[in-house]
Amino acid sequence: MGFLKKKSSSKETEIQEAEVLIEQQSPTCPITAIVEQDNRTIYFYLWGAEGSNFGVKSSWVRNLKKAPQQLETALMEQGVPPMQTEEFCIHPNGSEKLNKDNLSIIWLEEGDGAALLSNGEVISIIASWAGQNGFNGYSKEAKGQGDFAWELSDDNALYDRVHASKEFWDAWDLEQSPFNILQPKILDTYDEIFGEQDNYFAIDGNEWPPKGLYLKKGESKTVFATVGLSLIPMPVVEMYTENRFDANRIEFGFLINSPITDEAVQQIGGWMSAQTTIPWHNITFLGEGHTIEFMSLNSSKLNFVLLTSQLNILPEPNIEKYRNSITNFLWMVPISEKERQHIIDNGSETIIEKLNEIGEEVFSLDRAEVI
């Protein structure tokens, strides 16, 4: 999975085929963590699924031999994983090999970053923002800001995140899991805002993480709302926002004019269920002003939805913070392809303003386009 291994032309040593010491799948994203060791160096990799935008992130862990003084550019051109140069090594003469039996991985809660541990000690971390601006990851063996890894100092804030992530993953083995705790709180909020639920569906397909769908069939409007998306923070948010706690958790809502048939309820519920996997399966995030494809229902021309909490006529469920994060409740408002293109070209502000002007017409799939 790592660099293509080739024999070095060096007279001093032959580069051996790398051994995979540990390989583990992210609990939430199509990303695989791999640690490889040859006779010269050790690297920690995060491999995104083929076709994803994640790519491959690689971070040097340690040298096993005396560090070179200059970058091993010739070896890099051959696809050989380079040693960190002497300037950026705490142990310039090299360190001992790692024992695979002593290694473990802790994934960050988003599932897009991970820490490598040896005998329970964090020795390397690849964060979600690795691969940008000369940063590849952190290593306990690194000194300063090396070409292949930066120093993992004792005051690095990621230590706290790693420890909190372990606590979170361990909590799923408790009798009162995070979902058991969060689900009734969210349902109480929905019952208070929308009215007591008429039905509740599990939409996780008996797979982890658990998720549900609240349904309230009113005389004039029917409300759908997801339950449990906010348990897992979305990946890559912190690459685009200043404070990840403001944008990394979501729940979805959908509101439509009543009456609707049981068949339509099933169709909408199934469609919403499918959308709940988008951030993690695609290693991305969803937020205010984003658009996604909508199902074909009643031959409506409204075949996309706008995700927003900015429409005046829509209720605003106030879901309490979870693990220090705000939970953003995003309404899925049906829009046309023409309206979506306007949003892509100009942002969502104008469309939201015009949707506010038509009031309750936004709940109808037969409404006229606003542009």
Rank of each mutant, 00 (worst) to 15 (best):
N39D: 07
G120V: 09
E110L: 06
F148K: 04
A171H: 11
T276F: 00
Q84I: 00
S230T: 06
N346Q: 14
A368W: 13
F224L: 01
Q267S: 08
F252V: 03
Y322M: 08
V236R: 10
N328C: 11
I34Y: 06
A264D: 15
A127K: 13
M1F: 10
G94C: 00
W208C: 06
F363I: 05
M76S: 08
E87T: 13
K143E: 10
A225D: 05
G270I: 05
Q197V: 11
I181Q: 11
Q37L: 01
K6M: 11
W129G: 04
F135E: 07
F3S: 10
M76E: 12
E353V: 10
S309C: 07
M83G: 07
V80Q: 13
G253F: 06
E151A: 06
S10N: 04
S273K: 12
A274Q: 14
T276L: 02
V305N: 03
L255Y: 13
I203F: 00
E109R: 15
M332N: 10
Y214R: 06
K57T: 09
L64V: 03
R244E: 11
F329D: 05
E369C: 05
T73L: 12
I319N: 03
V333T: 08
Q132H: 15
E77L: 14
E242R: 01
Q70F: 13
T28I: 12
E242G: 06
